[in-house]
Write a protein that binds this DNA or RNA. Sequence first.
DNA 1: GACAGATATGTCCGTTCTGACATACACTCC
DNA 2: GGAGTGTATGTCAGAACGGACATATCTGTC
Lengths: 105, 105
Amino acid sequence: MKKTKKNRLESAGWRVGDAAEFLDLTDEEVAFVELKLALADYLREIRRQHGWTQSQVARRLKSSQSRVAKMEAADASVSLDLLVKSLLALGATRREVGGVIARAA
Amino acid sequence: MKKTKKNRLESAGWRVGDAAEFLDLTDEEVAFVELKLALADYLREIRRQHGWTQSQVARRLKSSQSRVAKMEAADASVSLDLLVKSLLALGATRREVGGVIARAA
DNA sequence: GACAGATATGTCCGTTCTGACATACACTCC
DNA sequence: GGAGTGTATGTCAGAACGGACATATCTGTC
């Protein structure tokens, strides 16, 4: 039901921006972090597609620039709730969000 | 960029277990609650497929029976983080989770 | 290389979430 | 109708989150 972290490390090879592998994380934790990263990347992508700054996005979300930066960085202080709510608030559909999660590396 | 709640109500008709429509929620909030409900249902489905009780699931998740009940009820006190982490911990894949979110009513 | 705009990082405090416990409710079997 | 098992609901103390602010680090442009 659950492969060991070791197996995962052995078969995974190197992937950019994936520091989680080097920490003491279980499989599910790795999956969860990667999932957050995918959503964070998508948030940044949406912002750039619209040509918005982080501050502009922050205003739309009634939040702050620093929080948007942390969202895009998938910072540990950012919850999945915040990421998903933000994506939906910026116009992403549930289908799109689900797609990003399903397709995430 | 954002249809009114009224439009949504008019076009949606009745759906079971969807009390959100009657509260003062924005479109994104409705989408978010429905998304949580879909994951909650999926959690219950997984549990039943394995023939587990809520208490057994709670032990696996290192949580409590009451919290599992609240997860399955998509209680307001349950975060998306908790739901998704729990699903992953029970063996669901990111693809499955994404699928549930994308396909959610 | 100074300035400006954009993005990143650190911290703080009020709010929200979570596990745990108690208890209530539902169902079955005897 | 009492006991046993499973599920739901209410509450609370401790932990985690989120907006805000300050500040640091980029990234041009002049």
